[in-house]
Design a protein around this nucleic acid. Structure first.
Length: 879
RNA sequence: GCGGGCGUGAUGGAAUGGUAGACAUAUCGGACUUAAAAUCCGAAGGGCUUUGUCCCGUGUGGGUUCGAGUCCCACCGCCCGCACCA
């Protein structure tokens, strides 16, 4: 063939850019991805966690949305009516921070970013119904959210109470936990104070039991996520009891404690109360030292991690309680920084021998350590390590209130609760770790809480016909100035000062906005009817809900998913979702991150300087800077982050290789639930493969008709590929499916089969690849002779598009092999391989194995004690 | 600190308790080419005075099993979450 033939034939070169633009236009023209309620079809709702509009998409997004797209496209070919929507989690701090840092308005910043990100996403060729797109900062969306809030309020699912926040006294603002660094405000550097504010709460704890129970029904959720939620909800049964005070003080004659280990009551050596316990607060008024101690404790942030990590500190109040069992003995009352007012009663008894925190505390302040039980075979007294065996382990008790001698911890706990209840010392109580959901945020860029405070009427809900309560854009005729410290809503007279909806007297709008978790707790329901005049449309919700497959990062395993589960129930209770929606997500998949190597050099002071992957090249086996050739240190892969500069921009990858290459690669190298490392060579290899498939298709088309060799073998491989790839997609084994597609491509290339058989195999290959590489597949599908162009809408039965072709089905009879190869082990070590007929029974397989030379040689005359035959799998001879 | 997860060649990884390393990268060799690129074919976990259906090998140390990367226990390392980041 003349050398220039290829370059003169445009179709012979894989031109991703041209192909992708062409088919995206065709899909658009056919309105192919519009979700339609079609009662004659089974529906499938696939959803990826919607993005925060930061302004740039990153590879993590590409991976997340590609996975969802593979499922969506596969399910569409499998005959489902698919809903695959996209929107924007658009409220939140970054917009406000940007406005503070560089002027501008959060609204403009956010909508600008959305436009940018949408433009970056469209070229990926995702089968998304863009007609349903919305942003949570659209008044049409948050207005409906306000309606939900009012309905929740009416149902008693919302209330107000005091709660502590991080207060920055210089910036005059509430700080998020992540904005508190070493106890100081991130911007001002001022020492953060804890401040109590009246805040809004959702009564999620009223559903704790239900949320826990229902985890058992979520069979298609990862077990780890269910376990994390179970531990987070944290149901425990313990004993609530009062320790009478030796002398009543500040109106208290006893301290009420809650313990999950009442069995260790006789190991108690002190009582510890939280800094915010009513007694501690009362005492600090007359005790300057205690006041100072409490003030010091309150300086730390409010996050649990910070409180737990802080050094255990205490202050002896000098007060005592009577020992509940030992007449005449007393226990001291300490204020301790590791006791949380939020959990139980805000007071505990310390049992140092069997709790590490209590032990650390006791050693520090020289309090007694009393062993109450020992291991079955060990009498060693507790030293610096508390003895905390599993509650299921039997131990020997030396001193036990209920008189237990040898029993497990759990048995002793139950016995002690019974014992205490019988004597009126306390009551068994079920307690949850789960706290109510504080939704108030003292910020501008969030959904306004639709209530008005009135001096006469109190807290008055806004009337529904006045919704949405929209955020003001201007202040005094000009866009709000965010460089002024404080909450703009708080200082905005025309927005804030409104008449009471009930009595009409002057009132003040609530200036708190909602936690952004509220926005993301029901967006999946809104997607089923995004333009409805009510939060949802019951008919649409009834058809589309629940989400059949939800995909997102494991970092949302607890909060977002738990809040969404709560919202579904609350929306049901208020008539916004049908009864089947207790659990909104039938199946959950948590995908891993995209990582990249980090390239660093050092400046003259030894501090690291990071370099972008595109500024680095490999020369003579060394990684060097393109500019100057300085060698760089290669740090192992980590999550892509701007600060480490180990980012690869999807836009530039799509420009260089095409969307199909990016899609193929992010799915190929790692199991979806694990991290995938982005490498330039891997991306190039992916692109090479797609070009190879393109060539394979054109070469096969160019073949001359005529008989070939082993057509049947190729077709058998084709059916195996259909079987394996289908199974891979169904089970989220995208990387395994892709490995199979690589292998199948090689099989076709090497096959000497005739044109008909090869064309059939290539068409199957193209179709099996289509969920991952839809544009290439569409191009080749058309080239390979599938009839028609895009001219008819899919619900009218468009044909000719690979996106519309029914998914191929493997012929089971073609999957069966006549002969099976089986390994033979001697004592678990592989020693031989045998070929047996498919239908051979165990005895026959054993006979064939024993008759094999290699087996006899390995046995070396020994007599087998036992022969294990696992049909189709393995033979193990035990001697 | 607490809760959850992960750990396999030089690298990413494959493997319903049943032949460890599929597939891919990097590397090396070969074909094609005047040459290079592209493309195609092939080698490859480590070891060895024994090249053998040999020995060792899935973070470390134990255990269960005819058989363990897979199940159990302990430890080490890394990652995620910890309620106002999204």
């Amino acid at each position: 063939m003349p050398e220039d033939t290829q370059t003169n034939t445009p179709t012979a070169v894989y031109d991703a850019g041209a192909i992708e633009a062409k088919w995206q236009e065709a899909w658009d023209a056919a309105d192919l991805f519009r979700a339609r309620r079609d009662e004659s079809k089974a529906k499938y709702y696939v959803l990826e966690m919607f993005p925060y509009p930061s302004g740039r998409i990153h590879m993590g997004h590409v991976r997340n949305y590609t996975m969802g797209d593979v499922i969506a496209r596969y399910k569409a070919s499998a005959g489902f009516s698919v809903l695959h929507p996209m929107g924007w989690d658009a409220f939140g701090m970054p917009a406000e921070n940007a406005a503070m840092a560089s002027g501008g308005h959060p609204k403009d910043w956010t909508y600008g970013n959305i436009a940018d990100m949408r433009a970056q996403m469209k070229p990926l060729g995702l089968s998304i119904d863009w007609s349903r797109e919305f942003a949570t900062c659209d008044p049409e969306y948050y207005g409906q959210q306000q309606a939900l809030f009012l309905d929740f309020m009416e149902k008693g699912l919302v209330y107000r109470k005091n709660a502590v926040v991080n207060w920055d006294p210089v910036d005059m603002t509430v700080l998020a936990n992540e904005q508190v660094i070493d106890g100081k405000g991130w911007r001002s550097g001022a020492e953060v104070e804890r401040r109590e504010l009246t805040q809004w709460f959702f009564k999620i704890s009223s559903m704790a039991e239900e949320l826990l129970e229902a985890l058992g029904t979520l069979d298609d959720w990862p077990a780890k996520v269910r376990l994390m939620q179970e531990n987070w909800i944290g149901k425990s049964r313990g004993l609530q009891m009062v320790f009478p005070m030796s002398e009543p003080a500040h109106g208290l004659d006893g301290i009420e404690v809650y313990t999950t280990r009442p069995d260790t009551l006789l190991g108690a050596s002190f009582i510890a109360i939280a800094n915010d316990h009513p007694l501690a607060k009362a005492l600090e008024k007359d005790d300057a030292k205690l006041a100072a101690f409490n003030a010091e404790c309150r300086k730390s942030g409010t996050s649990e991690a910070e409180l737990e990590k802080a050094e255990k500190q205490g202050y002896d109040t000098g007060l005592t309680v009577k020992h509940p069992l030992h007449e005449g003995e007393t226990l001291p009352i300490w204020v301790a920084n590791f006791v949380l007012m939020d959990y139980g009663t805000g007071a505990i008894f310390g049992c140092p021998a069997h709790d590490q925190r209590d032990l650390d505390f006791a050693r520090k302040y020289d309090l007694p350590v009393i062993d109450t039980f020992f291991a079955m075979d060990d009498d060693t007294a507790v030293g610096t390590e508390a003895f905390v065996p599993p509650k299921t382990e039997k131990v020997r008790w030396v001193d036990q209130p209920a008189g237990v001698e040898v029993a497990t911890g759990q048995e002793a706990i139950d016995a002690t609760i019974d014992w205490a209840e019988a004597r009126g010392l306390g009551t068994g109580k079920v307690q949850f770790r789960l706290r109510d959901w504080g939704l108030s945020r003292q910020r501008y860029w969030g959904c306004p809480i639709p209530v008005v405070h009135c001096e006469d009427c109190g807290v008055v809900p806004e009337k529904k016909e006045n919704l949405p309560v929209t955020l003001p854009y201007d202040e005094g005729g000009k866009p709000i100035d965010f460089t002024v410290p404080g909450n703009p809503l708080d200082r905005h007279p025309t927005w804030r000062d409104v008449p009471c909806p009930s009595c009409g007297k002057p009132g003040k709008r609530e200036t708190d906005t909602m936690d952004t978790f509220v926005d993301s707790s029901w967006y999946f329901a809104r997607f089923t009817a995004p333009r409805a005049e009510t939060p949802t449309d019951m008919a649409d919700a009834d058809y589309w809900m629940n989400v059949d497959q939800y995909i997102g990062g494991v970092e949302h395993a607890i909060l977002h998913l738990l809040y969404s589960r709560f919202f579904s129930r609350a929306m049901q209770a208020t008539g916004h979702l049908p009864a089947k929606c207790d659990e909104p997500f039938n199946a959950l998949f948590t995908q891993g991150m995209v990582t990249h190597e980090i390239y660093q050099t050092h400046d003259d002071r030894g501090r690291p300087v990071y370099h972008l992957p595109e500024d680095v090249e490999v020369k003579d086996g060394k990684t060097v800077l393109k500019d100057g050739g300085q060698e760089v240190e290669v740090v192992p892969s980590a999550k892509m982050s701007k600060s480490k500069k180990n980012v690869v921009d999807p836009v530039s990858i799509v420009e260089a290789f095409g969307a199909d290459t990016a899609r193929w690669f992010v799915l190929s190298d790692s199991p979806p639930e694990r991290d995938v490392e982005w490498t330039a060579s891997g991306a190039e290899a992916a692109h090479r493969h797609l070009a190879r498939v393109y060539r394979l298709a054109t070469d096969t088309m160019a073949m001359e008709d005529g008989p070939g060799e082993d057509d049947d073998a190729l077709l058998r491989e084709m059916h195996k590929a259909i079987h394996d790839v289908t199974g891979g997609i169904e089970s989220f084994g995208f990387n395994a499916a892709i490995a199979k597609l690589y292998a199948f491509t090689h099989t076709i290339s090497r096959s000497k089969a005739g044109r008909d058989a090869k064309l059939q195999a290539v068409k199957a290959l193209v179709q099996l690849m289509s969920p991952m590489t839809p544009h290439l597949s569409e191009e080749l599908w058309a080239m390979l002779g599938a009839e028609g162009v895009v001219s008819r809408a899919p619900w009218l039965g468009a044909e000719g598009l690979v996106a519309q072709a029914p998914w191929p089905k493997a012929d089971e009879s073609m999957l069966i092999e006549d002969t099976i190869t089986m390994p033979v082990q001697i004592n678990g070590k592989r020693r031989a391989e045998i070929h047996v007929p498919r239908e051979a029974d165990k005895a026959e397989v054993e006979a064939i194995a024993m008759a094999t030379d290699a087996v006899q040689k390995s046995l070396d005359g020994a007599t087998p004690k036992k022969v294990i035959v696992v049909p189709g799998r393995i033979v193990n001879v035990v001697v």
